[in-house]
Design a protein around this nucleic acid. Structure first.
Lengths: 223, 223
DNA sequence: GCGAAGCTGTCAATTAGCTGTCAAAGCGGG
DNA sequence: CCCGCTTTGACAGCTAATTGACAGCTTCGC
């Protein structure tokens, strides 16, 4: 999952970032309206967490930017004020949920999850491809019924490839989905590394990860 | 097990809460339609216990909210009235069971368990997995017939793992199910701690709790 | 009520094993 | 045959998980 956090208070931001990062989500951080808009122009996000009070303007501007662009990305608004009016205002502007500071991080996570759930109703299906079964709910992958052990990043990578099975996925796209901006510059080589590791673990299956030199990777069935 | 109690009568609510808390279940309490809807938006529950008469509306609204959202969470309705019509009305609206006040707490517990059982068709009350038998009604666990002593939280943890046996359960999910919101922020480390304790107590059995670093825990049979 | 026993959850030291870097070797296309 | 992309092994770092010790609570028997 890829999130954008727009928040200028350092300690609040740090707490949020590390809590999501720990779960393996890719979270980017913007400190101002401008930075947020730049990130949004460049990158698709699954969820935006938006503080209302920012140094160079109001969070509402960002909300409007998102909605006038026709995006349906769920937005959760954070604010220090608890007035009902404020809440109604944000919700009217297109926010999907609302949280008053100070809040419990678990509640933030719960709300983000709830938004995503509303977004994609019933995506609890296992994906089967050739002889591998991928179960995102159980966090499990099996090859013709026998489970294999994947580490978080490997699982992550397989999920991306599986979502684009039979299609060529550029390495940069994989990289983006696996790592967030602020994860101090990870080398693109990391992707290649994980492709290698995943290949080894999928060795016994009838799918393989094909390299298209200069273009990307492709998950194919050997049939 | 995580429950939501929607009830505005204090003494009734207190009795219910402490009875479930004693058992080790995480129970959240909402005093109004509004509070209930907010909790439901944020958190998945295994069961909702719903009083019909509330200060700011009728329990039916909540029932409708739940069902129109497509959720199948079992709902047990409490009411002071015993009319058949009332009962039919609630059930038509999507309630799974019905209890007339005043009621016996043991009956409430029994009905809640029954609803959960219906939820997962393969559950006939006691769960057997490899050589362990788990009886939620009697609060008993045995390994190949001989009972073992589990503390409340250990029992709780085992219940969660058993409900997701062979699947990977993220630590955060376990945490959510073990502790309710109002339990002042317990460290996530508590989960790890109980995993350790449960492991020791299950040492003689043929099941084990596997760690998947960064992903969660998984109850597996050693066969 | 009182003390004992057991249950809970915090803390911190330790361990385990994933992560990502580097660099060397391999490979493919022109 | 050369260049640049890709693969891979080794390794250091680091974060997540394990575990023992402990203090505060509950519960229970008397």
């Amino acid at each position: 999952m890829r999130l954008l956090l727009v928040e200028d208070t350092e300690d609040v931001a740090d707490a949020i970032i590390s809590s999501f990062a720990r779960r393996g989500d890719a979270i980017d951080h913007a400190l101002s309206v401008r930075a947020a808009c730049e990130s949004l122009a460049v990158q698709d996000y699954d969820v935006v967490i938006l503080d209302m009070g920012l140094p160079d303007g109001d969070g509402t501007e960002i909300l409007e930017t998102i909605r006038t662009a026709g995006s349906r990305t769920p937005v959760l608004v954070l604010t220090a004020r608890s007035d009902i009016e404020d809440r109604v205002f944000a919700l009217d502007k297109g926010a999907d949920d609302y949280l008053v500071k100070p809040f419990d991080l678990r509640e933030l996570h719960a709300r983000v999850r709830a938004m995503l759930r509303r977004q994609t109703p019933d995506r609890s299906g296992v994906i089967s491809f050739a002889d591998i079964q991928f179960d995102p709910a159980a966090l499990m992958v099996s090859v013709s019924g026998v489970p294999i052990n994947l580490a978080r990043r490997e699982f992550n990578l397989l999920e991306i490839l599986l979502a684009n099975r039979e299609r060529v996925v550029p390495k940069e796209k994989i990289f983006e989905r696996m790592f967030s901006f602020n994860e101090d510059d990870v080398n693109v080589n990391a992707v290649e590394l994980y492709v290698g590791r995943l290949r080894r673990k999928l060795a016994g299956s009838s799918v393989s990860i094909k390299t298209l030199r200069g273009m990307g990777y492709q998950l194919v069935s050997d049939e």
